[in-house]
């Protein structure tokens, strides 16, 4: 593996569709729950420890070689909102497209053939990390970082938030991001022997509920 492959996969410019999603930040901005850097940080901290942890453990498990079909079902069970499930599969297809073009390999081709309608994005992320020669902890770090990086970037666009303040938020969350990734890898290793029920199921009800309202609303800038 190369460290540069990790940077490439984690780069927000990797062409896998993430730019059109705010990770719930747009709904939170509209509801007045994110108004500045401090409230963005609290929002991101909550997301990191809930959907971020779940995504990181799914990604790590996929990178370890767990069955993608079982992981996809586990992701469904941990995602009550139909809108978020649909978005996760769509982003999964987009990431698989980018991953297959970037790191061509039989395993990714097989994933595309087996699941033409897509699997949840974190599952694809783990498989793509594996194809890039990366470790499960790399996949977990990518997923955990993405869970906060997306909302931070979106908030810069939505609120005109000072971009230096937004990156400061991400820097302050870095130690917690590392811890979430480490916890996700431990759970993923456990799931290899215990089954996918060993994966974390931390949920963020408000993210799920506001995602449904966002999907039904008009005049939004971000898909989720």
């Amino acid at each position: 593996m190369t460290r540069a492959a990790l940077l490439l996969l984690a780069d927000g410019r990797f062409p896998a569709g993430g730019h059109a999603h705010s990770g719930g930040a747009e709904a939170a901005v509209r509801a007045g729950r994110i108004t500045d850097a401090a409230s963005l940080e609290e929002f991101c901290r909550g997301r990191l420890h809930t959907s971020g942890l779940v995504a990181a453990s799914l990604a790590a498990a996929a990178a370890l070689g767990a069955d993608p079909g079982e992981l996809d079902a586990a992701a469904d069970a941990r995602t009550p909102s139909p809108a978020l499930r649909a978005a996760a599969r769509r982003l999964g297809r987009q990431l698989l497209r980018a991953g297959r073009a970037t790191w061509p390999c039989g395993e990714l081709d097989l994933l595309a053939r087996r699941f033409p309608k897509g699997v949840h994005q974190p599952v694809v992320l783990g498989a793509v990390a594996r194809a890039a020669g990366l470790e499960p902890s790399d996949a977990a770090h990518c997923a955990a970082y993405e869970s906060v990086g997306g909302p931070a970037t979106a908030t810069v666009r939505l609120l005109g938030l000072d971009p230096f303040d937004a990156t400061g938020v991400l820097a302050r969350l870095a130690p917690a991001t590392d811890r979430v990734a480490a916890r996700a890898v431990r759970a993923a290793r456990e799931a290899l022997t215990e089954g996918v029920d060993a994966l974390p199921a931390a949920s963020a009800p408000l993210l799920e509920i506001s995602a449904e309202a966002h999907a039904a609303g008009a005049g939004r800038l971000f898909a989720t």
């Binding site: 062409p15 896998a16 993430g18 730019h19 059109a20 769509r90 987009q94 497209r97 979106a154 800038l221």
Partner: peptide, 21 residues
Amino acid sequence: AVETGACPHTAIRDDISANLE
């Protein structure tokens, strides 16, 4: 309709994955 996250040029040039879908 493809949703573009406030950056329509990104969706047609830098990250075309949603449009290809």
